[in-house]
């Protein structure tokens, strides 16, 4: 369902509004890393993924795994806007009994493929789903979104070795490279550079892009799908908190909900009013 860039930009804009409204209503959640991944999710859900909200169980569907599960608000907004469930349900985020738990819980009916929230797990599980696709000779692709801080976890590199050993060219990983994690910059907490070289040395095909540029995301995904014989990682350079001035490039808004005036200010800056 390729759409033109103007339309995708508009979707991204509305997705940011949903994210802030949901987190604002819930009174808790993770705005920074949700906002940084908006264009990536927009490109995936509104152009790239072969999925059908009317047939969420379709066995041939592409799979998306949100390994950085704390960005759940972004995933939920994408799924609702794509038609997996009513947009009004977004406001039940983090409430008792809601399908929209603080961190994603597997519920294929509404498009949530894997439970995540503890970092590192989603990536390895995506590798397993991709491996099953190979065993069963399926055409589906597996897309997985990781945080850069998440790459601190040893399991990420265990899974990376495994995926290249088994030549999982049906697996496309995207790293949301926003340069911040929970308690500081990635540079101060755990330097990852040279990140592209690290992935490359694990025998992955590496692309590096601007993760807010929809044209670049789409064209890179096209190229990624054509790679044969090895898994692909796209290092998407992004801005944590993108779109809300006071949330940008800081870890302060990693896991905090805006309230009162700041909530209003955020919605205003995003043009949600």
């Amino acid at each position: 369902m390729a759409r033109d860039i103007k339309e995708l930009k508009n979707i991204a804009k509305r997705m940011r509004c949903h994210i802030i409204q949901m987190i604002g209503r819930a009174g808790s959640g993770h705005p920074g890393g949700s906002l940084s991944s908006v264009e990536l999710l927009t490109a995936l859900y509104f152009s790239e993924l072969r999925i059908n909200p009317k047939k969420p169980n379709w066995p041939e569907r592409d799979r998306f795994v949100l390994s950085k599960g704390h960005a759940a608000p972004a995933l939920y907004a994408a799924l609702a806007m794509r038609g997996f469930f009513p947009v009004q349900e977004l406001l039940t985020l983090r409430q008792l009994g809601s399908r929209l738990q603080g961190h994603p819980e597997r519920d294929v009916k509404i498009g949530i493929e894997v439970s995540t929230g503890s970092l590192g797990h989603g990536f390895s599980q995506a590798v397993g789903i991709a491996l099953a696709g190979k065993i069963d000779k399926k055409k589906y692709k597996v897309y997985v979104l990781l945080g850069d801080g998440e790459c601190d976890e040893g399991i990420v590199w265990e899974a990376a070795m495994f995926a290249s050993k088994y030549k999982l060219d049906n697996l496309i990983a995207i790293v949301d490279r926003n340069h911040f994690q929970l308690s500081g910059s990635t540079k101060s907490v755990m330097p990852l550079s040279p990140l592209a070289k690290k992935w490359g040395s694990f025998d992955w095909k590496v692309f590096e892009i601007n993760g807010h540029n929809l044209n670049q995301i789409l064209s890179t995904l096209e190229k990624a799908k054509k790679v044969k014989g090895k898994p692909v990682v796209i290092i998407a350079n992004t801005v944590k908190g993108k779109g809300v001035s006071f949330m940008e490039n800081t870890y302060e808004w990693h896991g905090k909900a805006p309230k009162g005036e700041l909530l209003e200010k955020a919605l205003e800056e995003l043009g949600c009013k």
Partner: peptide
């Protein structure tokens, strides 16, 4: 822990 949910 509250709103973060079961994984936490």
């Amino acid at each position: 822990v509250g709103p973060d949910g079961g994984s936490h």
